[in-house]
């Protein structure tokens, strides 16, 4: 049984009245959701509150989950909306990113850099939350551009722009660290 099948079965059981089934989903995905949210808000207490809100919203709206889609993608979407609302309330400037495509060439600085975990975490943290999120969903969670676009509710072109900028910025920062 694939993870998708197992998730769908758990959702069905939950909707049928088996409360343990949602606890199963919580156990399975709490780290992924918490990791994403924490890397966006960079505060463990806030991240736990937001991850909790996301799971409660998912539970309340379980009947609206489309079983054809991966459960984790649906959960990421809820976590994204919850986190963005929080960031807008808290720090409006951090989520306001211009989406025009006017990047300049930034050179070849990080061509063969090997980035350590702590350095990567710190450099990732220096990006804006939406860039961080795009990178994490693409490379950490392995989602395709189309899935990310659907999840974030934005055009695929916008996802490409965010990834483009995030990677170029991070590449420059890695290069600067190496130098």
């Amino acid at each position: 049984m694939t993870r998708h099948d197992s998730d769908r079965a758990a959702v069905r059981r939950c909707l049928g009245g088996d409360s343990g089934a949602f606890a199963e989903l919580l156990e399975r995905y709490q780290n992924q959701i918490f990791s994403l949210v924490l890397r966006m808000v960079r505060n463990p207490a806030d991240a736990e509150d937001l991850a909790q809100d996301a799971f409660v919203k998912a539970f309340r709206n379980l009947a609206s989950y489309d079983p054809e889609q991966p459960f984790i993608t649906w959960l990421f979407k809820i976590a994204h909306n919850t986190t963005i609302d929080f960031l807008r309330r808290k720090r409006p400037e951090t989520v306001s990113i211009p989406e025009d495509d006017s990047l300049v060439d930034r050179g070849l600085s990080a061509a063969d850099a090997v980035v350590g975990e702590a350095v990567a975490e710190r450099l990732l943290g220096s990006l804006t939350p939406l860039y961080r999120e795009a990178l994490l969903l693409r490379h950490k969670e392995g989602l395709a551009l189309k899935e990310i676009a659907g999840l974030l509710g934005i055009p695929e072109g916008t996802v490409k722009i965010r990834l483009f900028r995030a990677r170029e910025l991070l590449k420059d920062k890695v290069g600067a660290e190496a130098a």
Partner: peptide, 12 residues
């Protein structure tokens, strides 16, 4: 390298 570094971040 950037993609690999992000992919290698630990689960929290």
């Amino acid at each position: 390298a950037v993609a690999r570094a992000v992919a290698a971040l630990p689960s929290l």
